[in-house]
Amino acid sequence: MSDYTLTKESPLNGVEHEFDGITIAEVIDQSLVMVAMPRDKVDKIDSAIKKSCGLSIPTMGHSTHSSDALITLWRLQKNQVLAYYPYAGDDAEADIADKLNAPAYYTDQSDTWAMIRVSGERSRDVLERICPLDLDPDKFTIGSVARTVMEHIGTIIYRDGDDSYVLLTMRSFSHSMLHAIEVSVKNVL
């Protein structure tokens, strides 16, 4: 056994920047677990998560919340959902499997993604310059989620409030993504 102890670090060291009407902050308290649903088990999974957490499988591009509002499920693909929820431990996979108690396949992706929240009344002005999706507040409604490309970087965008968006990119792209957002902020202000 080695004598070293590894310390957990978030991809962007908890970066937080305030601008006029825009806040950029790394999200560090959330975990992300992929929940793969075999085609013949979708109904079983839907009723199991309803029973355990009051959740349902969201429709494509939308999210659902558990009855305690802690677990959010995102639907980006036909045969899987992503569970986004506050968890600070080291085994989100076992933790969410235990909470959902459904016959699905779980993969912890928490540490592979960097999560950045862009919020504030001018957040849409910043995002519309880098996001190819229509972010009209009536179209990309609260709870909407999508995977797309921003500045050539594969990105998941989730709207978690009136003027609040969480962007997820692969961890190795986190600094490039932060740079893209900061450049967009400079262009807007």
């Binding site: 591009g61 190819p132 490309v149």
Partner: peptide, 11 residues
């Protein structure tokens, strides 16, 4: 068909 209009850059 599932996600609505998307830019061809994604494909």
């Amino acid at each position: 068909p599932l996600l609505g209009p998307r830019d061809s850059e994604e494909f």
